[in-house]
Amino acid sequence: MISPPPKPMRTRRLAGLLAALLVLPAAARAECGHVAHEGRGYVVCETDPARVELRLFRLDTTGAVLGSFARVDLMLAGEGKTLAFAMNAGMYHADRSPVGLYIEGGEQQAPAVASAGPGNFGLLPNGILCLADGVARVIETRAYLAEPPACRYATQSGPMLVIDGALHPRFLPDSDSRFVRNGVGVTADGRALFAISDRPVTFHEFGRLFRDVLETPNALYLDGKISRLYAPELGRSDIGLPMGPIVGALVDAPGDAPR
């Protein structure tokens, strides 16, 4: 049986998170900050999709794989936009093509995979991050397929970290499988919260961050080992091998400085 989340300390932990994140005007809120939980450190990036655009990126205008935060930012410069923050957004094959469902700009590039399989992706239930106009949702894959919403952008990954307020039933409290991990959850009031661990953590530890601190009813694991973050306000732009899907929060690029 899946046990409900514990109640003690949730308010205090959430207050600590909000204190760690700088409070910006609502219209410009796309903020990253350091959060500690159970002696482990994380970077959490928060935004309101109703006010700040969230978008997925994989291919440039020529059909070539972008693969890096720098190339995404360079492409966005042509729109007068820049990345407030970004991270890798789902699992991919050696050619950087998505493992599961992927929608970019309203065009489906890969179908959803609902069957169990090897690896983290196949550890059901897995899920989908769906981005529509002003709305972000994390949806369990079978629920998505039963009633597909209109997603302008979507990426599938797995496993789910939190499902209707409970941790994934396969997570083990005493697991020794530890990796740097990143994921995404959406709060009851619609805020999107992206997190990446500072050091290797278990699924159970990472899921508890989303359940007990970030208080996201549903949260999705994006990846481990290759997890990377772009957060210029923190002076962070992780590098490595080319990535597949990337998710980013967009803001207007700064104009020329006054003379």
Rank of each mutant, 00 (worst) to 15 (best):
A116E: 13
A116D: 14
G117W: 08
P118N: 13
N120E: 12
F121D: 02
F121T: 05
G122M: 07
G122F: 05
L123G: 00
L124K: 07
P125N: 07
I128G: 02
L129V: 08
L129Q: 02
C130Q: 00
C130Y: 04
A132R: 05
D133P: 03
D133H: 05
G134C: 07
G134V: 06
V135Y: 00
A136N: 05
A136K: 00
V138C: 01
V138A: 01
V138K: 00
E140T: 04
E140L: 00
T141V: 09
T141H: 01
R142A: 14
A143D: 12
Y144Q: 08
L145C: 11
A146T: 09
E147G: 15
P149W: 09
A150T: 15
A150V: 15
A150H: 13
C151Y: 01
Y153S: 12
T155E: 05
Q156N: 08
Q156R: 06
S157I: 07
M160T: 08
M160W: 06
D164K: 11
G165V: 03
G165N: 07
L167D: 06
L167K: 07
P169V: 08
F171Q: 11
L172E: 15
P173T: 11
D174L: 14
S175V: 11
D176R: 15
D176K: 14
D176G: 14
D176Q: 15
S177Q: 15
S177Y: 14
S177H: 14
R178S: 13
R178T: 14
F179W: 10
F179A: 10
F179E: 11
F179T: 08
F179Q: 06
V180A: 10
R181D: 10
N182S: 13
V184A: 11
G185A: 10
G185F: 00
V186M: 04
V186L: 05
T187N: 00
D189N: 13
D189Y: 02
D189Q: 13
D189W: 02
G190Y: 00
G190W: 05
R191M: 12
A192Q: 03
A192Y: 01
L193W: 04
A195V: 07
I196Y: 03
S197W: 02
S197H: 04
S197P: 05
V201E: 03
T202A: 11
F203Q: 10
H204W: 15
F206M: 09
R208T: 09
R208Y: 01
F210C: 11
V213M: 04
L214T: 01
L214I: 08
L214V: 05
E215I: 05
E215Q: 14
T216L: 08
P217Q: 09
P217N: 11
N218K: 03
N218I: 04
A219G: 01
A219H: 00
A219C: 06
K225L: 14
K225V: 14
S227C: 10
R228C: 08
R228V: 06
Y230L: 12
E233R: 14
L234K: 06
G235K: 01
R236E: 10
S237Q: 11
S237W: 03
D238F: 01
I239E: 15
I239T: 15
P242V: 10
G244Q: 03
P245T: 13
I246E: 01
